[in-house]
Amino acid sequence: MNIFRLAADISHAVAIVLLLYKIWTSRSCAGLSLKSQSLYVAVFVSRYLDIFRFVSFYNTFMKLFFIIGSSATVYLMAFKFKHTYQKENDSFPVLYLILPCIAMAFVLPYEYNPVEILWTFSIWQESVAIFPQLFMVQKTGEAESITSHYLFALGSYRGLYILNWIYRYVVEDHVDWISIVAGVIQTVLYCDFFYLYITRVIKGRKLDLPA
């Protein structure tokens, strides 16, 4: 564990809590993509099949937290506050995201066994899972400020992991190419959003996109 990875995991956990807080307090999931949230559940479940292999208490706790937190989000959106879900705006064709990730999982896993193939799928799927949400923000031209904070925390997390990978390469000689390449792609996808967040939301304005 190093400071970058800890900061990244905290940022990731904060993102999930922020989203649950927003949905629960506003009793609404307006502006949120159920497709993105469902992809995250798929990501966590397929990645954490090794949850019973003990690495550390921290590791197990965080895995459980991510699976439960993302599942709770999907439950609230798909059932409890379903009447507030704006299905018509959540129209990104997700098969275009899922199929290439399945292909990557079979073409380039570290090893050919079900756990490794699912792990590889989860890494690639996570890198593009935010697409339907960003598409929704783009389509409606706006995002509530708490949704913006959520996206910022979620985007920062993989960016901080890049610092962690650099640190681990230098200090521990540890390299995980699949995570690194997918993580860089994931972070780059947020760049446009980061720019808008810093130039607008931090200055107290709403995230309204130019027409």
């Binding site: 990875r5 965080m62 540890h174």
Partner: peptide, 10 residues
Amino acid sequence: DKAEVVKDEL
């Protein structure tokens, strides 16, 4: 030989 990647990250 290929070094095994230890999956200790989240």
